[in-house]
Design a protein around this nucleic acid. Structure first.
Lengths: 201, 201
DNA sequence: AAATCTCTCTAACAATCGTTAGAGAGGCCT
DNA sequence: AGGCCTCTCTAACGATTGTTAGAGAGATTT
């Protein structure tokens, strides 16, 4: 891993736990094992580290969303031995490579902290935790409804309830204290229980 | 308002927006209009301000919870011209004097920021945003079920869905950016829509 | 009237903050 | 071999951090 990547990695870990302003350049440097002036060779100032993290997250999310669209539109391709409904496929993909993913999870924590005094981060926070997940759920469930798997008229409320349940669980288990195996397990179990009830299969 | 109260008020406003560590003693003092040494007459150090805020919130919440218990157990007393079900009464009480209350709302924001590196605050955060609200909903809906208003076997899932919906709305509208009238209105409307659908009355 | 208590001030302390100038070491191109 | 580019270092800068000693003003108690 390059020095630049190491700096970003360490900075994200510290920022997401203590907040951007509470972490000093010297904290980051001593953890990485470099002198302060070396950091300033890779970043023009402290803010530049934060901006780079946000930019990296932006492109990461774009890739992820386009991949989700792909799965949603061609669910048949991805079916394995048991024909999972695309809801479950997309959800398990979102869990593994978004909510459980170390980089994304720490970025969500960082945004949760910084959103109150940074409008750019606030918008990204709202988009990635509320707007995008809702839209993803909506696309999938609309598709299921038009395929006749569920009644058309209930779509909106099914989406709302699914989305709100997943969101609550995310805040309760994944954006609360350390992301331990125990919390991941508890989260996964509750998601499974909800899905089993909602889409009885 | 006493100097001590002014300090706590200003500190809470600043802590909840920028985080505890990012706010300096001088920031607080110049906003209050006192010198640093005066602050140290009222608080033994910076941490003491935070601890005092947490303590104030703790007793505030205790009072609030005991009042909610009172309403839940004697709903008849509080009925006005139209006989609201106690669900709605408690919920509207919780909204006005908890989620919309300036002190409580700012404390929730502060706890949201500080929970990642302060275990005491994390526990209080989990209790006041997840554990307590769930229990309150459970008490009310159990009461409605035993009164025959709704089927007993569905109680658990009705509580879960109500709680998750309310929690999601809280994070989306009340713990996101500034607490504007617009966001309050949007929150209130969505709560109303959900309740109207859930407890068709 | 003297003494005590309550509250605020001036002025300073060492430590830490973000940031920079400039030198040096190693690899690559001419 | 000489020059250039990449990366890291030493050493320091002015500003800001949390905190404290000690004096002074006003009200209250003795």
């Amino acid at each position: 891993m390059s020095t630049r990547d190491k700096i970003m990695d360490v900075a994200l870990n510290m920022f997401s736990e203590r907040g951007y302003e509470a972490v000093s350049i010297r904290d980051i440097c001593s953890e990485v094992g470099i002198k302060e002036s070396t950091l300033y060779y890779h970043f023009k100032n402290k803010k530049d580290i934060l901006d780079s993290l946000v930019e990296k997250f932006r492109t990461h999310i774009e890739d992820l969303l386009s991949h989700v669209d792909e799965i949603t539109e061609n669910p048949a391709q991805k079916k394995g031995k048991n024909a999972d409904p695309s809801v479950q496929m997309v959800d398990s993909y979102m869990i593994d490579s978004y909510l459980f993913d170390p980089f994304c999870n720490l970025m969500l924590r960082l945004m949760m902290i910084e959103q109150f005094h940074n409008e750019e981060i606030r918008e990204l926070y709202e988009k990635t935790l509320f707007t995008d997940p809702y839209e993803i759920q909506m696309n999938i469930i609309k598709r299921l409804a038009s395929a006749g798997v569920m009644p058309e008229e209930d779509v909106e409320w099914i989406v709302r309830e699914t989305h709100s349940y997943m969101t609550m669980l995310t805040f309760k288990y994944l954006l609360n204290g350390d992301l331990t195996e125990k919390r991941k397990k508890a989260y996964y179990k509750e998601v499974h229980d909800f899905m089993a009830r909602r889409f009885k299969a």
